[in-house]
Design a protein around this nucleic acid. Structure first.
Lengths: 215, 215
DNA sequence: GTCTATATGCGGATAGAC
DNA sequence: GTCTATCCGCATATAGAC
């Protein structure tokens, strides 16, 4: 009952991507060489080369997956009718970011080294800002968020900025070497940006949520 | 009228540091090898080695200078009596960050590769948060900023986060490849965080400043 | 598909002559 | 102080056998 050849091939390709993602997240995309990746997988460099001719191809595939992971979350924009919808979407987003944390962590290296990655990253950010603005806009129309057009834009920009860069900063500021997952803390930090602009009722709700994310 | 030998030596050392800073800022600390640095300086690798035995020593020296550059700005904390004092301090800070932008841009690489740099970076961030909190606290006592203790902490944290990571994000989000200096935009973005908590008078002042930093 | 073996180049670091 | 020459190791990439 061994798997057919085609399935085995898919499996190796899949193993490469999964393992690479893990190593990238743990050690940084710049640090993880193709050789080390092959060693970790217990396959030969030649075999790795058979599946991916360049490191760039692996990177692009992983970034593409990250993009696909974000897509359904962002599609939910119109359904954001209350603060906790926003909160939930934020949570999913941060989980995705955490699962692919190398993407933003090593953004500078990736953008510098792989032109294809650079384009994709910029696209992700542009889409994210647009989506976030749409979400905030929906909240504003529902009277939950009190902002003018300019504040809306600045807020959306700042939320995306926080989402993308938070893990870099958290890791840097942390005493320990590992990456404290704490996506809740990240979401909380973003929500704090929103707080002053919320109406009374929603602000109270935030204060309630806040209690759950402090220790 | 040639310079005495000692002075020449100091000069080469200084030239190394200056050129290295420029290359780091332009191309990234990870990308710039000691060999490329030597080539750019028109000196031999051996000569470079004479002045700095390791790349880490150069990095540490540069980070130390960045720290020293920040120090006098941070010492001015008690003198923050109005919003535009804060604004000015912010401006100086962002100028310093821009002049040493590789420090935060490549923070992950630096922290990973050079333990000495990691410690220094963490110290810089810790001091910055403390300083910022002190500044905000002064503003709060003067009735300019209306925040409770928790908001103060979160705000300080977020301000430092923005200051350190902004250039990374700005560069990533930008279409062009170069680094748009625009420290004004960065300072404006930080000030926006403060706005909702300001008293009436100061908020108007901010709105006035805002006009100067939009195109 | 997977392996072994290897080409080629660049990185940091260093010895020893001048 | 500065150079030339060079070691060593690791990176990416690849050819060719199985």
């Amino acid at each position: 009952m061994t798997l057919p050849i085609a399935a085995r091939a898919v499996n190796t390709r899949e193993r490469i991507l999964r393992t690479c993602l893990r190593l990238f997240n743990d050690q940084g995309a710049a640090t993880v060489s193709t050789n080390r990746l092959a060693t970790e997988l217990d396959i030969s460099p030649g075999n790795l080369y058979y599946h991916f001719k360049t490191k760039e191809q692996i990177v692009e595939q992983l970034v593409r997956r990250f993009e696909q992971r974000l897509a359904p979350i962002q599609k939910s924009s119109p359904a954001i009718e209350a603060v906790d919808d926003f909160w939930l979407a934020l949570h999913f987003t941060f989980e995705a970011i955490h699962d692919y944390r190398f993407v933003f962590r090593d953004a500078d290296y990736l953008a510098r080294t792989f032109p294809s990655a650079r384009k994709r990253l910029q696209s992700i950010i542009a889409v994210s800002i647009a989506t976030t603005r749409a979400q905030c806009s929906t909240l504003a129309e529902a009277g939950i968020l009190r902002v003018n057009a300019e504040e809306l834009q600045t807020l959306a920009f700042h939320i995306v900025f926080t989402a993308t860069c938070w893990s870099v900063f958290a890791k840097l500021a942390a005493d320990d070497v590992g990456d404290s997952a704490d996506t809740g803390r990240a979401a909380y930090q973003v929500l704090t940006l929103l707080t002053p602009y919320l109406n009374e009722e929603s602000r109270h709700y935030i204060l309630y949520l806040r209690g759950k994310y402090r220790g």
